[in-house]
């Protein structure tokens, strides 16, 4: 379950950084440290590394962020459950058909607060990826999530939803058991929950499959996550009949956190450690935890009626048009 190191799986655009890091490592290993010429060279290299890192990471394109959001070493919901929360007790099953392992849920304690934590879950290795179905939930996942959210509402636990899915699963069984209806019911019923709901997109916010647990009082997003109506590849295939133009589609869809914040789709962008959450999962978790606690505290003072009214108004406002 331990993530492989990010350095073992660099992304294409990180190559210049890796090259300098490798030179640094060679120099440190091969030459004596007390040679002043070497020390100067090392200092210069470290300086250059800092500059290159900053240049690359401060100006990430939408597509580069998508690649970080999908990085195989990126922390997943259960990683955050362990790193942010004092305790997580998983509860399983939709009471109708199955337990969907790609959408998890259960009791959690966060800095002394009790909460219901739900989230999409991806797998780290081949076996777990299959078990988690690559984070693509079936109807049972959404129905389990709703069962747990209603339980939370009944007993006054706030809901925390960690969103990380390429989308709901496009499969035969999912259609036969009405994945669309399962998502739709969640959208409607989340408006009726009488407890605070905070959603955080921690990786991929893939369309209806993401929204199906994200009708929240506060919608947060990690700095290198994305939220989109369609995958950039899918969009490129429709628009240009060419999936390789996904980077252009990622720009066009305005799916990166700064743009989503500007459009009012999300309420806050949670910073990540330089290079992405996988470079320092513990630091990423601390930042996420801080944001979750702050928003839960802010929402904690509202009575159920106010919560629901504000939640309704928040979504009611979204979208621009002419002639209204």
């Amino acid at each position: 379950m331990a993530p492989r190191t990010p350095r073992s799986q660099p992304l294409d655009f990180e190559k210049p950084i890796i090259e300098i890091e490798e030179s640094l490592a060679r120099l440190t290993a091969q030459r004596p440290q007390d040679d002043p010429a070497v020390a100067r060279e090392l200092t210069a290299l470290r300086e250059r590394l800092r500059g290159v890192r900053q240049e690359i990471y401060a100006r990430l394109t939408s597509w580069q962020r998508v690649q970080i959001a999908r990085h195989p070493a990126r922390p997943y919901a259960l990683d955050y459950a362990a790193l942010c929360f004092d305790e997580f007790v998983e509860l399983r099953g939709d009471r109708a058909f199955a337990d969907d392992r790609s959408l998890i849920g259960g009791f959690a304690r966060l800095g002394g607060r009790r909460a219901m934590l739900i989230g999409h879950q991806k797998g780290r290795d081949t076996k777990e990826r299959a078990l988690r179905n690559f984070g693509m939930a079936h109807p049972e996942g959404y129905r389990k999530a709703l069962r747990l959210m209603r339980l939370a509402s009944k007993f006054g636990l706030p809901v925390i939803a960690l969103v990380d899915t390429p989308g709901a699963y496009p499969g035969i069984g999912a259609e036969e058991r009405h994945i669309a209806e399962a998502i739709a019911v969640n959208l409607r019923e989340m408006f009726a929950l009488e407890v605070p709901i905070v959603a955080a997109v921690i990786g991929e916010g893939g369309s209806g499959g993401a929204l199906g647990i994200a009708v929240a009082d506060r919608v947060l997003i990690l700095e290198n996550a994305y939220y989109s109506v369609i995958s950039p590849e899918g969009c490129a295939a429709i628009l240009w009949k060419d999936r390789s133009r996904a980077p252009d589609a990622a720009e066009a869809l305005k799916m990166s956190p700064p743009e989503l914040l500007r459009l009012g789709i999300v309420d806050e962008v949670i910073p990540e450690p330089e290079g992405g959450a996988h470079h320092d999962p513990a630091a990423a978790a601390a930042l996420l935890k801080g944001a979750l606690v702050r928003h839960l505290d802010e929402l904690g003072g509202l009575d159920p009626g106010d919560l629901r009214r504000k939640r309704h108004e928040k979504f009611r406002r979204l979208g621009t048009f002419d002639g209204g």
Binding site: R188, V215, S228, I265, F315, L318, G319
Partner: peptide, 21 residues
């Protein structure tokens, strides 16, 4: 959902569901 309006289109699903609630 109409992809040309990105997440605004996606959010209409929630908006309408809220009214239906």
């Amino acid at each position: 959902a109409r992809m040309h309006e990105g997440c605004f289109s996606l959010m209409q699903m929630a908006k309408i569901s809220g009214e239906l609630q």
